[in-house]
């Protein structure tokens, strides 16, 4: 059975700790852009923890919401890409082929979630920080778009390994970096085609909803509302 990878984000567990943010950066060779570039909106965070204020002091609340690529089944970023750099894989992932991207930035405009980030300059790692780079993930050059891949390198590695071991992937065998690090287990990743997987069960929760569902993007990420 083909996989259909998805995620559940439990907002009742998320503590806003941003372990996911740094874990993703570490796993996926996301460059830091430095203070000057960050100040002009060039910082890249494939996953971010949105925070929203409600009310005024003293009756004030804050809510956190981790936002990453929603791996939309009807992804607006895909049809607009003239070079198929943003495209749909057989497993339903929204893949980004950096080599094919020519930097029109159209996909980023079309993405309602603003989860696509552009390399405004060639990324640089002050030596020897480059020794940390994950050899399983290509680094991007100036002028290309990048975004959360659902840690596709981990997915492929696990699938290849499972094939080599001639045994199916078990639920939980495979975690993207953000979910693996998340101390509160707010991020649960797995196969939506397996009705018994943790992510499938959570996605059916009555607390579940999709972000900007009304846009018809059919995200594969389900947000589980904070229980009051």
């Amino acid at each position: 059975m083909a996989h259909r990878w998805g995620m559940a984000v439990d907002l009742d567990r998320c503590t806003g700790c941003e372990a996911c943010v740094t874990a993703c950066r570490a796993e996926n060779n996301i460059a830091t852009v430095g203070a000057a570039q960050a100040a002009v909106g060039r910082a890249m965070h494939w996953i971010r923890v949105e925070r929203y204020w409600e009310g005024e002091f003293p009756d004030v609340r804050l809510t956190f919401r981790p936002v990453l690529c929603q791996q939309c089944d009807a992804a607006p970023c895909e049809p607009v890409c003239p070079t198929y750099a943003s495209h749909h894989t057989e497993e339903g992932l929204n893949a980004q082929v950096y080599n094919r991207c020519i930097g029109t930035r159209y996909c980023a405009n079309a993405c309602p979630y603003n989860v696509r980030f552009f390399n405004f300059f060639n990324p640089a790692w002050d030596k020897p920080l480059h020794l940390q780079l994950n050899p399983d993930v290509s680094v991007r050059e100036v002028g290309v778009m990048e975004k959360c891949t659902f840690c596709v390198q981990r997915i492929s590695a696990a699938e290849v390994q499972a094939k080599a071991d001639s045994k199916p992937l078990a639920d939980g065998d495979l975690k993207p970096a953000c979910a693996q690090s998340c101390p509160a287990t707010a991020l649960v990743f797995g196969d939506l085609n397996d009705p018994e997987s943790a992510v499938s069960r959570l996605s059916r929760s009555s607390r579940g909803s999709k972000l900007l569902d009304d846009l018809g993007t059919q995200p594969k990420i389900t947000y589980l509302a904070k229980q009051a």
Partner: peptide
């Protein structure tokens, strides 16, 4: 328990710090 905080994730940069 298999988890790390954001700082722990960045600890690796101590080793490779320029």
């Amino acid at each position: 328990q298999g988890k790390l905080c954001a700082r722990g994730q960045a600890a690796i940069q101590v080793t490779y710090h320029p």
